[in-house]
């Protein structure tokens, strides 16, 4: 069967959360954690088994044991989170960040008739384009390609990075999460599949694309999240609240005729350090300004 890449084939066959039954019965196990509905036991030979009602429902090679939950690694950037009474599939931080990036400045284009399955991201920042490519590689083990365009604008020539991956598997996987579309600019965070770490990663990805940090006065900065799709932005704001932030209400700027209204909310100054520590941004311009805010805030505290 072997053809193509040996590394990729190995990943496809053995890192996709395959369930292997049979010979493992003779191995010895010890119970790692018991939940109300589930039991997790660890094999001496390596690997973990998830049991429900005494029956093995999954075998996994990796597990992360935390207080109140156990997280198993599945394929395609997903993890299985076992809580006291329920189990759910959650997005690993890398995939959550990828979803955030796509929600802000990317998209998913599926045209079954023409056989086009495209996941894309557009940015002026090479770093964000590279981040998109790296995240696609990390999550799906596939390589996106960066298409660079030079466009003349009023401010001179600008370079646009347009990384794309053409893959039905990836397009459907992301589309099934409902992160973008079906209407233009519409997006929704996959709230049912995000734990706290995932929410932070999603917000980092989203803010890198649709965030803004500006100086509004002497030693005063504004951290703003904006979008033309108000419902999605409301969900993003709610995620900040869930994580203990105190974002201001959404305000709407009516723009010139033919332009969509721009909605935005800001993070209050008292939450700036928390934002820097927990969320941050991947956009180089943001990173510089966040460092500046941190320095100013630390000086203010000293004063």
């Amino acid at each position: 069967m072997g053809g193509g890449s040996r590394v990729k084939q190995y990943e496809r066959r053995f890192f996709e959360g395959e369930q292997v039954r049979g010979e493992r019965e003779e191995e010895s196990f010890h119970v790692l954690r018991t939940f109300e509905k589930y039991e997790v036991r660890e094999s001496e030979g390596g690997g973990y088994e998830l049991l429900k009602g005494g029956e093995v429902i999954g075998i996994f090679s990796e597990a992360k044991v935390e207080e109140g939950r156990i997280v198993f690694t599945l394929g395609k950037g997903m993890s299985l989170e076992i809580l006291e009474r329920k189990a759910r599939e959650i997005l690993a931080p890398g995939k959550a960040e990828l979803c955030g990036l796509i929600a802000s400045d990317g998209g998913i284009y599926i045209n079954s008739e023409k056989g086009v399955y495209e996941v894309y991201f557009d940015s002026e920042d090479r770093e964000l384009a590279e981040l998109f490519i790296n995240l696609i590689g990390e999550v799906y083990h596939e390589t996106a390609r960066d298409y660079i365009r030079f466009e003349d604008t009023g401010e001179g020539k600008k370079t646009y990075h347009k990384p794309r991956i053409y893959s039905k598997k990836i397009a459907y996987d992301l589309a099934d999460l409902g992160i973008k579309g079906p209407e233009d600019f519409e997006f929704h965070p996959p709230l049912n599949h995000l734990d706290e770490e995932g929410k932070r990663a999603y917000l980092r990805g989203f803010f890198s694309g649709d965030g803004n940090i500006s100086m509004t006065g002497e030693r005063v900065h504004s951290i703003r999240v904006y979008s033309t799709y108000k419902e999605g932005l409301e969900e993003v704001r709610q995620m900040f609240i869930d994580l203990g932030f105190h974002p201001h209400e959404i305000r709407t700027d009516h723009r010139k005729p033919g332009w969509r209204d721009l909605h935005s909310f800001t993070i209050p100054a008292e939450d700036h350090l928390k934002f820097i520590e927990e969320i941050g941004s991947r956009k180089p311009e943001h990173v510089e300004r966040l460092q500046l805010i941190k320095i100013i805030d630390e000086r203010k505290e000293k004063d």
């Binding site: 069967m1 072997g2 193509g4 040996r6």
Partner: peptide, 9 residues
């Protein structure tokens, strides 16, 4: 019979 020929070998 099949064989295996990988590009990264």
């Amino acid at each position: 019979p099949d064989n295996y020929t990988y590009v990264d070998d």
